[in-house]
Amino acid sequence: MGRGMKRWMLWLPLAVFALLFAVVAAGLFRPADRTVRSAMIGKPIPNFTLPGMVPGKPGLATATLTAGRPHLVNVFASWCVPCIAEAPQLMRLKAMGVPIEGIAIRDTREDLLGFLRRNGDPYERIGDDQRSAVQVALGSSGVPESFVVDGAGTIVLQHVGDIRAEDVDDIAAAVRNAK
C-alpha cells in the first residue's frame, strides 16, 4: 500500500461513523411508519360466514359483499376505546347513505348491546368473529379498521385506526366510486 492510500485509510473510520450517525439521526427525526397495512387491497374479499350476535340483526357473509352494492366493512369491538371515538363518524356516514357492515372482534353479546346502546348503531349486519379469524383473513391487525369493498367484492381501500371527522368525506367518496 502506498503512502497516499494509507492517509486515506486513516479517515475511513470517521467517514463510516459519520455515515452511521447520519442514518441514525435521520431515523430519529423521521421515524419509520409502523402501520401494518393489509396486502389484500385490490384482491377479492376472502370467503367467510360469520353468525349474528345481536337480536334482529343478521350476521355477515361474503355473499352480501359481492351482491353488486359497495359497502364499508368496519372491524370493531366493544372493548376498543378508539371505536367509541369513531362511532359518531360512522353514524354520519350512515346518514350520508353509506351501507356499513360490522365485524365484531372477540365480543360478548351483552357488551356489544351496551356499546351499540351508548354509541349508536350504524350497522346493517354484525358478524361475530370470536377468534379473529376473518380479521386475519382480511389482513387487519387491530381495531378499529375499515375496508371499502366494491360491488363485485374487491377490497379497494383500507383505513387503519378510527375514522375521524376529516376522513368522512374521503371515505364516503371512496364508497360512492366503488360501484
Binding site: A77, W79, C80, V81, T108, D111, R131
Partner: peptide
C-alpha cells in the same frame, strides 16, 4: 379501569 382488551376466553 379502562378496558382495552377483550374479556372473551383465548382460542
Amino acid at each position: 379501569p379502562v378496558l382495552a382488551d377483550p374479556s372473551t376466553p383465548p382460542a
